[in-house]
Amino acid sequence: MEHTKIERLLEKYFQGETSIAQEKELTNYFSGSDVAQHLEQYKPLFGYFSLAKEQTISREIQLKTKKSSFAWLSIAASVVVLLGVGMYVYTSSNPVDAHEKLGTYTNPDEAFKATQKALALLSNHVNTGIGSVQYIQEYDNSKDEIFTK
């Protein structure tokens, strides 16, 4: 009696015409113990459906993505690059400023005088340097006195 009903339901099932309630009825029938011999072959099918519904995800869902931390990393990296470039431009442009601040002469005479003054200053300092080297000459003299004999 029940078997014929199940057979009819199965036929409808394979035609795609059963409702959810009817499909539940089939699942219940095949999970029971008194399945007719000739319908036994459908047991694994409905058994699998119930089993497959129990599968759950084992991993925790992370809402903070790796992508967003990557974005932060790239922002940090670009800041570093900007700082680097900034520092380079800042330091390399400064000496140019320093040169400009030294000023320059427009009048050739004035420039000549200034140059002479600078060179005189230089030679003056060089002479004082040489003056202190004069002592060394004394060693040379004493050496000559000793070794000429």
Partner: peptide
């Protein structure tokens, strides 16, 4: 959907 479902179910039955 019904057509595709029916086809799929019948394929499974055939295999079984």
């Amino acid at each position: 959907i019904r057509v595709a479902l029916s086809r799929a179910r019948k394929t499974i039955r055939e295999f079984m």
